[in-house]
Computed example of a mutant assay.
Amino acid sequence: MKEQEDMQTKEVILQVGQLLRQIRNEQKLSLEELAKKTGVSKLTLGKIERGETNPTLGVIWKITKGLSIPLSRLMVIEDIVNVARCGEGFIIEENQMWRLETIFRYKKETGLEMHRACLQPYSIYEAEPHHEGAIEFVTVMKGKISIQVGQEMYELNEFDSIQFEANRKHSYENTGNEVAVLHLTMKYLS
């Protein structure tokens, strides 16, 4: 089982690298130009493109923000009809407190992407601001979450939802003693 997970992870890492190279080439950028736009070193970008490293969520955010693309654009390629099974999407973990799993990656036709996030008890996750014009929709599926958007704090209980402009600083806090589960939908300007 562990071997199969390792193989799947390697395949995803290779795919992320291939997609990054493709997008960089579409935008006619050299690795050096991309490094300047993203703040990620040329060496790290090269390793990602070659599938030699598993980038952190912070690095992926910097890259997608620098390229002005949604996070999920670097994720798994979809078919015309997709079924998203829990635990089978592209997963990024941040400090073992925040786990983000792609449910449906960005499609230009809809301007949407969807994720499932899990936040460990008594943890805070500070999200990077998204692209200009991005709108985030969050529904708490399990637990209770405090979401700070800018200077304002919002308390959400199970099945409560919030919508906000995601290009602002925002964070999620789980003050409860169980893992909180969130569904996040991002809407980008097409």
Rank of each mutant, 00 (worst) to 15 (best):
M1C: 06
K2E: 15
E5L: 14
Q8D: 14
Q8K: 14
K10R: 14
L14I: 01
G17Y: 02
L19C: 04
L20M: 11
R21A: 11
Q22I: 03
I23V: 11
R24I: 00
N25V: 02
E26H: 10
K28S: 15
L29T: 02
L29R: 07
K36M: 05
G39V: 00
G39L: 01
V40M: 02
S41K: 04
S41G: 10
K42M: 03
L43W: 06
G51S: 05
G51M: 05
E52Q: 15
E52H: 12
K62N: 00
I63N: 00
G66P: 05
I69Q: 01
P70H: 00
L71C: 05
R73M: 15
L74Y: 01
I80E: 14
I80S: 12
G87C: 04
N95Q: 15
M97W: 10
T102F: 07
K107A: 12
M114C: 11
H115K: 07
A117Q: 09
L119S: 08
P121G: 07
Y122I: 03
S123L: 07
I124E: 14
Y125H: 15
H131R: 12
H131M: 14
E132T: 08
G133D: 01
I135D: 02
I135E: 13
E136D: 12
E136K: 08
F137E: 13
F137A: 08
F137N: 14
M141K: 15
G143T: 06
G143Q: 05
I147Q: 12
G150Q: 07
Q151D: 12
L156M: 11
N157Y: 11
D160S: 10
S161V: 02
E165D: 12
A166C: 07
H170N: 09
S171G: 12
Y172R: 04
E173I: 01
E178V: 11
E178C: 07
E178N: 08
A180L: 03
V181P: 08
L182C: 08
H183Y: 08
M186K: 09
M186G: 12
L189W: 06
